[in-house]
Design a protein around this nucleic acid. Structure first.
Length: 304
DNA sequence: TAGCAGGAAAATC
DNA sequence: GATTTTCCTGCT
């Protein structure tokens, strides 16, 4: 199934797919091939148009429009963020980059795997999980796989996940899959809550035990931002921490600033994370998550 | 609450 | 080829 989608809004496919939000897109010449919720889709940007080839009608233009959040008024968002020179430069340099709206379970599971790993490794782990436990389907002569459901993963052994190269993450993924399957945490309900309540609930405990073992504040924020549309979420990873401490030294107490910069060996505590994230939220407001995405892109393009 | 373990691949030297 | 770093969280 082929279709062309008239953009009529600022959008940059490459910036968006290379912004570290997604792990199941591969470049193939001018095309990008992505495995998404209900199939696979091949996309190429030609100026104001997106050329698309989809594995089924479920990955049609309304899906793509929703996935790339083309209804967001990007100019309006960016105009609220361009409060300083560096942010303005980043917004212009990566103009057209958008937050995506990906599948909730895939997003949570993917970022659960992202601890102590770099992007190529995360992709490798996600890909291993999909090819072993996902449902196979054919697209343009190649075998693709769906992202395995919570049920499918919860029924597997920790050992099988270790064989996928997950290491210590193997136990986390099994437990979190079971918790989601059993609705210990209802992802749809999370999405319906205001940011702060949703963030808190994701980190909550039941009888003194984390419901989502392995999900800390950073993973929770990635999940909320990339799959729930909670645009206030401001995930802080190593790159972002260093960037914001350098860009906005005044926003943080000196101790916290040093931790963000990774100086002196002392690590951030959970409280430090919330303080730093909240500081960015109070600077950039309800689109802080978009600011984070542009800072991330700028920081990775120009380390230091 | 601070410090450390975890785990393997990529990036860097 | 060895060492350092890597989109962090849990445990003590």
């Amino acid at each position: 199934m082929e279709y062309n989608l008239a953009l009529e809004v600022p959008f940059n496919l490459q910036y968006t797919l290379e912004s570290g939000q997604v792990f199941r897109w591969e470049r193939s010449g001018d095309w990008w091939v992505g495995d998404v919720t209900h199939g696979a889709v091949k996309v190429m940007q030609e100026g104001e148009w997106l050329r698309c080839v989809a594995s089924s009608e479920r990955v049609g233009s309304s899906f793509v429009r929703n996935y790339f959040r083309l209804d967001d008024d990007l100019d309006a968002v960016l105009s609220t963020l361009m409060k300083d020179e560096r942010m303005t430069v980043a917004a212009q340099r990566f103009y057209g980059m958008r937050l995506v709206r990906q599948d909730q379970w895939e997003c949570l599971a993917s970022f659960l795997l992202a601890t102590n790993a770099n992007i190529p490794r995360i992709k490798k782990m996600v890909s291993a999980l999909c090819s072993r436990f996902g449902e196979p389907f054919e697209f343009e002569g190649a075998v693709h796989h769906s992202f395995p459901s919570p049920e499918a993963l919860a029924s597997r052994s920790v050992n099988e996940f270790e064989e996928c190269g997950l290491g210590y993450r193997a136990a986390f993924i099994k437990r979190v899959a079971a918790a989601v399957r059993d609705l210990k945490i209802d992802l749809l309900e999370i999405a319906s809550l205001p940011y702060k309540e949703a963030h808190e609930l994701l980190l909550s405990e039941l009888r003194g035990e984390k419901v989502l073992l392995g999900v800390g504040p950073k993973v929770a924020d990635c999940f909320l931002l990339y799959s729930c549309g909670k645009d206030e979420a401001f995930p802080i990873d190593v790159w972002i921490g260093k960037a914001v401490a350098g860009w906005y030294p005044r926003l943080f107490p000196p101790r916290l600033r040093r931790k963000l910069l990774g100086e002196g060996g002392s690590k951030m505590s959970g409280g430090d994370y919330e303080t730093a994230s909240e500081a960015m939220r109070s600077r950039f407001g309800k689109y802080a998550g978009y600011a984070q995405q542009y800072i991330y892109a700028a920081a990775r393009a120009q380390p230091g």
